[in-house]
Design a protein around this nucleic acid. Structure first.
Lengths: 145, 145
DNA sequence: CTTATTGCAAAGTCTTTGCACAGCA
DNA sequence: TGCTGTGCAAAGACTTTGCAATAAG
């Protein structure tokens, strides 16, 4: 995945007039660390050990800023809470209906373009973004019957 | 669109052990009446004239039942609230980033299958459902500059 | 030293729940 | 008549906002 270094993130924040704080770097690192799509609570829990005083308000404010400077994307997989993804490349998401896991899948650019053009023609819309969600059973839950 | 008659809905509700009430029929009719993807508040407002005493609780309970008996689908277009759709055929949804309109587009079965198989192969998931959202400008907002 | 950010608590949205009364079967 | 459904109000989950203390530049 194409994650930013602390230095790159620092520069981006400064360019946009945001100050650089340990919390902001840590939230981004937590998101970029692995293929992970946490919601606010999961992020909060992960950051607890390092920032025992951190509040949910900071988590929410921070992801809003990271989204604003376009280094993370916000996912709505049909749950009650939003999930956050440090991979900003356009890709699909899958959610396991049994265990709740959320995973990535790659998007083929040719298919994506074809689909978008078809839908634009049908609908008259000018399309700038897509979000595709697949629901089913993850590999683990598929084999456990 | 393939909407149910009151009689068909009545039968389905009874089959599943639900009672048939004017509110339930009216919520379904409101949804089926037009190509419309209201959230709870929009539904509530639409039903106000006919049912001035109806509460939000009834709206929410009713859409849950209609979803349970599989006559409506629930959409997450990335807004704060869910939207409801009486068209249960699998189709795309578009949301206008300017005026907030939510519209339908048809889903090509061939493309759907191809995509699903690709993603299953990549991810190891067993996929049973999809929700695809396109974001951009609707025809009206595209031409108004 | 100035201004933005943090953390807390309170408020705000959307949705769900509990319960008494009303209405379907 | 029996039991589910409705409507109200209160509670719940997630997120946002206001503000004083704190930290960044």
């Amino acid at each position: 995945m194409n994650m930013l270094t602390s230095q790159e993130l620092t520069n981006l924040l400064r360019e946009r007039g945001y100050k650089v704080t340990p919390q902001r770097l840590a939230v981004y690192e937590a998101l970029a660390d692995e293929t992970w799509h946490p919601n606010a609570e999961m992020l909060f829990n992960k950051l607890q050990p390092k920032f025992p005083a951190m509040s949910f308000a900071t988590v929410y404010k921070t992801v809003e800023i990271l989204h604003d400077i376009n280094v993370i994307q916000i996912l709505n997989t049909g749950e009650d809470s939003f999930r956050y993804d440090a991979d900003i490349s356009e890709h699909y998401h899958l959610r396991c209906l049994k265990c709740g896991a959320v995973d990535d899948a790659l998007m083929d650019d040719g298919v994506k373009l074809q689909l978008t053009q078809d839908v634009e023609k049908q609908s008259g819309y000018t399309i700038s973004r897509r979000q595709f969600y697949f629901f089913g059973l993850c590999p683990k839950c598929s084999t456990m019957h």
